[in-house]
């Protein structure tokens, strides 16, 4: 278990290969250590809201949530809707990181208030570039409100 205090990215991804590839991409910029991974939508909400198995485990709010859309239990869109509807959670930046470049998905996510929508490139080199750029941008360049900490 990584240090909760270092947690800056919440990665919501059920596919272990994608998790590893994402982590590898982040690692290229030494950002991998600050990532916490959950594997379905319900777990993501539990983590953020400190419910379920995260009830008694205080954790830091992530600087950004990397959210896949196709997830077990609750889909990424449902997680996004819940996050953006919650008074305390709606300020957390959410980046959808998905394979889907379907227009309805993109539209729906923006309607719900997604902060960014990224289509995972098929090609690994591009993927690495995109994910590391993403990490750098949200963790180092972007500023979030102070109470998000």
């Amino acid at each position: 278990m990584m240090d909760q205090n270092l947690m800056e990215v919440l990665l919501v991804e059920d596919n272990l290969s994608d998790v590893e590839l994402t982590l590898r991409a982040l690692k290229k910029n030494n950002l991998a250590n600050n990532v916490f991974v959950v594997h379905d939508g319900a777990e993501a909400l539990d983590y953020i809201n400190q419910t379920g198995k995260y009830k008694d485990k205080p954790n830091k709010r992530p600087k950004v949530i990397l959210l896949d859309l196709k997830l077990p239990k609750l889909s990424g869109v449902e997680v996004l809707r819940a996050l953006k509807a919650g008074e305390t959670t709606k300020t957390i930046p959410v980046v959808v990181l998905t394979s889907s470049k379907e227009e309805p998905d993109i539209k729906e996510c923006y309607k719900l208030g997604v902060n960014s929508y990224i289509v995972k490139p098929l090609d690994f080199e591009t993927f690495v570039r995109v994910v590391s750029d993403l990490g750098l941008y949200w963790l180092l360049i972007n500023k979030v409100p102070a109470d998000n900490q």
Binding site: N15, S17, D18, L21, R24, L69, K70, T98, S99, S100, K101, E102, D105, K120, L122, D123, F124, E125, F127
Partner: peptide, 20 residues
């Protein structure tokens, strides 16, 4: 939708790990 998502996931994995 499935094709765009589900089929690409393993493919990206293959691409990714071959690259690694």
């Amino acid at each position: 939708y499935s094709v765009s998502h589900d089929l690409q996931v393993p493919l990206r994995a293959i691409n990714g790990f071959v690259q690694i």
